[in-house]
Design a protein around this nucleic acid. Sequence first.
DNA 1: ACCACATCCGAAAGCGTTTTCCAAGCGAGA
DNA 2: TCTCGCTTGGAAAACGCTTTCGGATGTGGT
Lengths: 337, 337
Amino acid sequence: MVRTTIRDVARQAGVSITTVSKALNDYSDVNPETRKRIKELAEKMNYVPNAAGRTMGGKADKVIGLLINDLKPTDPSGAVYGILSGVCHACQDNGIEFILLTSDILRQQQETLKVLCLKKQLTGLICSGFRISDRYMDQLADIDIPCAFIDMRTPDSRVLDITIDNQRAAFDAVSYLLRCGRKNIAMVNGSTVADVSLLRESGYRAAMAAAGLEVSPLRVVNANFDDIVAYNLVWRLLQDDPGIDALFCASDLMAIGACRAIEDLGKRVGSDIFVVGFDDIPIAKYLYGGLTTVRQDFYRMGYVAGQAIYDRIEGTSKAHTDDVMYELVVRGSARAG
Amino acid sequence: MVRTTIRDVARQAGVSITTVSKALNDYSDVNPETRKRIKELAEKMNYVPNAAGRTMGGKADKVIGLLINDLKPTDPSGAVYGILSGVCHACQDNGIEFILLTSDILRQQQETLKVLCLKKQLTGLICSGFRISDRYMDQLADIDIPCAFIDMRTPDSRVLDITIDNQRAAFDAVSYLLRCGRKNIAMVNGSTVADVSLLRESGYRAAMAAAGLEVSPLRVVNANFDDIVAYNLVWRLLQDDPGIDALFCASDLMAIGACRAIEDLGKRVGSDIFVVGFDDIPIAKYLYGGLTTVRQDFYRMGYVAGQAIYDRIEGTSKAHTDDVMYELVVRGSARAG
DNA sequence: ACCACATCCGAAAGCGTTTTCCAAGCGAGA
DNA sequence: TCTCGCTTGGAAAACGCTTTCGGATGTGGT
């Protein structure tokens, strides 16, 4: 395959490569007619500027990298997909390059974040799926490009944190259960190293405290965001503690496992036991008369992250990153009176 | 930010850039000790070869692009995500670059596939989500890099088609319904321009024919792979045609909509009406006593596609692309006896 | 007729690599 | 001692593009 170069176009047009470059890049010091002629010719010749050449010439195009920690074969909640497509579309809308990265590369080669950024020539970085225990947090200071984390607060003040107000959302959800008349609310949490888990649990506790209720340590379990684990834990929990009349789950997936356990124990979701999930995954509305849940818009989170990083790169006015809203969606699994 | 270049390393090491380049690329004509010294120094200096520079120098790294047609904000079936992560991992495992592309770029700039490949300097291309009506099919002949399509047969014999045997899978699924004693089986298909729909319908008809049953044209509806549309169509279908005792759906999502319609009409899924879906999406096991369905492994499809394209690029022995298997998963929504 | 100035275009440098080719140094064999 | 060949390292070209700077030409004002 022979690539058409700028030289070919120049030769064909009978001008210098300088002129072709200027014409194609809309410089002012080239005759409008010449420009038109060259543009048409380039088009006809199927000329595509060599990206590497441009970069070398000093016109590198900007790239936002989305770094996903531990990309798994499936994505039951759709969170990763939503974020990914959001970032992707934000990049497209702003005419900036997008590239997907996974932490496997880091792990394999024992690389630092900084080296990764250099290697991929990143102009901006968005990270998702990390936990507060991850060692990459120490490396954030070295990074000198705009950077955002999704769903995790970071120690470095220069990095953007894109997330809903998880604490408040959990507070609202649990408050709703309380308003439904439920008092014995247990929580099925995710993991102790996920920042969102910490925040949601904190919101849960705050709501209970506000209602003057105490929370037994046994009534908070960690199911690692897994439906099967949640099933097992809830199955035992409900037998050990028959007084429980509601469950607040830190993800829909775990809520599904929980609901199954509830039914397998001969109780009814939505009457005997109220269940509230988190995320509003696509099939939440089909389960158990509909799963009451806290809706998060992952696509929007990704989009906002992409837009915000783009704005930082360009130094333009900030996108407001705090409008990533949540919403309590009430369905059959927990409905007031 | 000042990037460390090969020149910096050379200066620091007191050798020429040639020697550094050779040392780092493991050329034989450099003293082992010198090589070691340079490598350590480069490491210490955080030197990362400039990709554009390498490309210009003639050592471009290979890139496989995954082109997704019409990337949507959500991916309820998880198919796109599975394929994506599969390709991504295959690329990682083979040490080849991976890049995600969407057709929006094509549409926006009215570009051809070839131009896209040139622009991104692709060495290999994998396409997903396309339909037989898409105009890009005409452009396949121009592409001179290894190319694969997922879930769509292409006219060009040089491109790989990665897909399960949809016709056979549908045949098996419908045969199973027949073995369950069901005779009035309707089909909820996807779209007439999706290749998989055509194949699945063909399998459905073949199975019915093999059982000596005729298929009324009214008993095949197209719900565009959408759960809501499926709901509406099935809701009407079952009223117009009360004899129907089973439904074969071309996707789980549509099956879910269908099931809902069935229950809303006061009938029971799995007894009054058997339902078989397609895909085995993550929550299929939770619905209606479990959805009987044809399992596809999208991750594996992606991985196989990536591996196959890599093999073509390298000219090495072919990966066997025909082992992308399916499996009928029997659950409550359609169980024999 | 002359100068100032604007318009249009090209020569050449430079970006960071790889790679080809040549030279220097050295030991061994004649 | 001379030559041959091997080992090690460097000079320089090449890749495709952008950008700076200067040169050529034309135009208007004096």
